[in-house]
């Protein structure tokens, strides 16, 4: 059996003095979509930020394709092929859609062409000269994902991609996520919208108060309402 593409082993992360992640271990295999679920404040976003290097773990190891990356700055981790799509999307509002994409492609070893991105997101082609701040929430989320795609990221870390969006837009983005999964993209997704996340995930971890409390398949989670209620509140 080959080693997982992304291996997180017993990481402990802190914000100042507050201990947020306790010995969190999880892994994501090649071409696998893994959902990280949990209530608000469970440590999901912190996990993604730690993997991306925005936050350095106090202990534990993070390996991408066997190479340790913990403690490296985000730009180096990005160049190795990890890409965080942050919760707040962090679109550059003063830059046009196309400039946002060109910026993302600058240091990518195998960048997609703009045309390929626009084929995937026709809406972004229409909006390519618009400033980032003029985009709707859904368009911003598409652009945020497109920035990871144009870099041809080996692992995409999606933080709450469906948050704050209208149901119709969520449906669109779920379709996009499924397409990415079918293309064999490796994705670690954090989401409050459990149904949406389960619809394209291969495997699930549940995080509670900074601890991994469950690991399994979407089917076994759906079949266990008590588990859903205990850790996800639904």
């Amino acid at each position: 059996m080959t080693a997982p593409l992304l291996e997180i082993e017993r990481i402990n992360s802190f914000y100042g003095d507050s201990h947020i992640l306790f010995d969190v271990s999880l892994n994501v295999g090649r071409n696998e979509v893994v959902a990280l679920l949990g209530r608000n404040g469970a440590g999901k976003t912190t996990t993604l930020r730690t993997i991306m290097g925005v936050l350095a773990p106090r202990s534990g190891s993070i390996r991408l394709d066997g190479e340790p990356i913990q403690g490296r700055p985000p730009f180096e981790i990005a160049r190795r092929g990890l890409q965080l799509v942050p919760e707040e999307r962090a679109i550059f509002g003063q830059l046009t859609v196309e400039e946002n994409l060109r910026l993302a492609a600058l240091t990518a070893p195998s960048a997609w062409t703009l045309d390929r991105i626009y084929e995937f997101f026709p809406r972004l082609r229409e909006r390519r000269r618009s400033g980032g701040r003029q985009l709707s929430g859904g368009e911003q989320q598409m652009l945020a994902i497109a920035r990871a795609l144009i870099r041809d990221a080996r692992v995409i870390l999606l933080d709450e991609p469906f948050e704050g969006l209208a149901p119709l837009i969520v449906r669109d983005l779920v379709r996009v996520s499924r397409e990415l999964a079918e293309q064999g993209r490796t994705i670690l997704v954090v989401e409050q919208n459990v149904t949406a996340a389960l619809s394209f995930a291969d495997r699930v971890y549940i995080l509670n108060n900074g601890h991994v409390v469950w690991e399994g398949t979407p089917e076994s989670l759906r079949a266990d309402p008590a588990l859903m209620k205990a850790h996800l509140g639904i």
């Binding site: 991306m52 925005v54 700055p73 985000p74 730009f75 990005a78 160049r79 890409q83 965080l84 942050p86 962090a90 550059f92 910026l103 993302a104 600058l106 240091t107 990518a108 920035r147 870099r151």
Partner: peptide, 8 residues
């Protein structure tokens, strides 16, 4: 910060 996350 986001510029760094995009590999720069």
């Amino acid at each position: 910060r986001m510029v760094g996350i995009l590999g720069i």
